[in-house]
Nucleic acid binder design. Sequence first.
DNA 1: AATGAATGAGCGTTCATTCAT
DNA 2: TATGAATGAACGCTCATTCAT
Lengths: 222, 222, 222, 222
Amino acid sequence: MSPATPAQVKRHRPGTAAYDKGRATAAAILDVARDVVLEHGLRGLTMRKIAAQIGMSPGNLSYYYATKRDLLEDLFTLVITGYLEEFERLRQMQVDSPVAQLRAVLEFVYDDLGQRETTYFFPELWAAALRDDWAEEQMEMLYRQYRSVLIEIVTTLRPELDEQAVTDIALTISASIEGHTVFIGHKRPHRDRAPHIKALIIEQLISLAVDGPRVRSDGSRR
Amino acid sequence: MSPATPAQVKRHRPGTAAYDKGRATAAAILDVARDVVLEHGLRGLTMRKIAAQIGMSPGNLSYYYATKRDLLEDLFTLVITGYLEEFERLRQMQVDSPVAQLRAVLEFVYDDLGQRETTYFFPELWAAALRDDWAEEQMEMLYRQYRSVLIEIVTTLRPELDEQAVTDIALTISASIEGHTVFIGHKRPHRDRAPHIKALIIEQLISLAVDGPRVRSDGSRR
Amino acid sequence: MSPATPAQVKRHRPGTAAYDKGRATAAAILDVARDVVLEHGLRGLTMRKIAAQIGMSPGNLSYYYATKRDLLEDLFTLVITGYLEEFERLRQMQVDSPVAQLRAVLEFVYDDLGQRETTYFFPELWAAALRDDWAEEQMEMLYRQYRSVLIEIVTTLRPELDEQAVTDIALTISASIEGHTVFIGHKRPHRDRAPHIKALIIEQLISLAVDGPRVRSDGSRR
Amino acid sequence: MSPATPAQVKRHRPGTAAYDKGRATAAAILDVARDVVLEHGLRGLTMRKIAAQIGMSPGNLSYYYATKRDLLEDLFTLVITGYLEEFERLRQMQVDSPVAQLRAVLEFVYDDLGQRETTYFFPELWAAALRDDWAEEQMEMLYRQYRSVLIEIVTTLRPELDEQAVTDIALTISASIEGHTVFIGHKRPHRDRAPHIKALIIEQLISLAVDGPRVRSDGSRR
DNA sequence: AATGAATGAGCGTTCATTCAT
DNA sequence: TATGAATGAACGCTCATTCAT
């Protein structure tokens, strides 16, 4: 997934990044920060590492980002914004049928989770969300957008279901795919099985959307 | 899940913990360390915090665990060993049918992922495994044991499938549940939907084990 | 006390502030600097704070004041010049008697020390003078002017005294009032007693000027 | 004035300074800290400077004092406690007459203000009290103890005065001496006039205690 | 088995100052 | 005149680790 352009991100010091040179620097900072996270993890991300990697003084880095927190928030926003746009694109995609659209969405997500950035970034996001309210909100916003696409499709597929049932299906589908990241993601132990696992889980989740649940949202069996 | 007994953990300084008192201390250290991880996350785990919480000097803590790494490895081993035993128990469980056994296993896993310990520990484990070979091995060992239980059941259910197909199904099932941790785990945003989502995904995965895949392990359709 | 006009202050970069606009800017800088000192103390005075408060870049601030030291010297000069003028005014004041003039001078000083600016600025000046020769000189120049007014009055009152004795009396009078700043100054703990204390000390010091000392400047008793 | 023994001061990390060696280090820290304040002022006091001067690592310094604030509070307490004890001694002093006792107290204070420690420390304390509530409290506590001695003496001397009047006299006396610090204190410009000024102001303040005020505490003239 | 003491590297951040434009 | 960009040293503080007792 292509990253959002830095222009969309505005947490760096106001007045900063006004000239071309500064704008390039601001973009480079987030770029390098993302690399550092991929390489050393979120806890290995230090202001000094970013500064060193970019060849700038710590003082100058804090000229752009007054606090590490600001930088981190911009970085998260940058990554998440990219996905937000992607999901919007998937929602507006022209397709033959709801099932085809659902398959397209799930294939996109599954393929993306094999990308290096995704494999390394999302587990960090999940862990961060456990202890940071802002991160939790961002994560929830991202997945809400994702699920809203699924909800639209499932609503079309299953007009007889109530809203809660549809929402539950969307949540189940999205949650079920995410876990695959740590097994068949980039350089993960079962990466080689990705194509088969992908087919398996996607067909099964489509089946859930089309036929399931055999259990109603109130827990009773149909 | 009950923690492993300290006797099973052997990474602390050789020659130490020779007596009962010492062994008890070593166990207490890991116990406190786990609490600290739950409360502050892996990056909030410091030797000083452990020492303070246990009422011990940092110097003495390093008598039991010379390095933080050693302590961390014992801690991971402790947690993982607990699951290993649990899966062994599930394998030997007496049940009426393979489907009932499968359901029991999946229900155990799903319920467990709502436990505070699990919700907070596993995302940390996944993130750690991305950058640490030892952690990756431990994680893989844990999930291998988990999958081996699934493989046994699916083999009974689907004798016509080859080994690879069965393995893929087991991997798919296990991977599909894990992701739910960050959505319906302890205090996670969709915790209240857990009962319904649990029913949905478990029935669907049982269905995968019983009927699926409609796609063969070589990718061709049945 | 009215601030000195910018024209009197000449420490900023030679060649700059040649035009009216520049001179106004230089004055504005000092004005803001004084506010910052009042609010954050001398150690809370930073070039960045001044620049920010005046809506100017640090770079441009250093165009007017190449170093913080320069700015500080101008600031001290500005404040001190104000008092210099005030003392000159008090010297030339038309009054009925030397005692009335003395009382007017001491009342002015006592009232002034309750002003926010004075209460906050002078202790800083005293502390600065301990470690900075320039500050010490400025401080001494200020108090010399103050004492010279007192010396004139006491000389009129006590023509029999030699110069040293008069000087000692002036020093004693001025020094004795200054300490009140930290007790009954702006928002200081005993501010509410200021009117009574003022009457007490002023009458006593007038008495010193008129009757005292009972001890000669050589230490012998009269 | 002899400094309080470090044993009286307890703001360093608990558990620290348990052995003789550690206790010596803790004492040395405050000792060096006081020297640094005398030499560089309160704003020139840095943890690193203290550590360097004492020949210890910054890490070890923060083993004794977790924060600079803690160290500063201990330092202030140390200095102030010394005076508290001194004033207690002066209160219990056996003397021939109230006037002699008053003279003894004022002479002590006047002589002390010429000590290097006092000359350099008190202006810092006054400035600190302007912006730090804790410092203000400490300062007020110190002067309250000082004034209580004066109040006792003046009450004996002037039994006809009401409490407020006596208190005002004590405040006036103490406040009037303090300001001399910056003029005739250690190495201050008028240090050479100290003996004469001392006689002048002390006699005048004794006179205030004995005869004055000619103005009642309600402002009316007697 | 346990302590207090000590190190040294690294952290995020501040700030006076410099410089090209 | 004025800006944004950049530096480098210093700051308070944290932390894993070591060591003598």
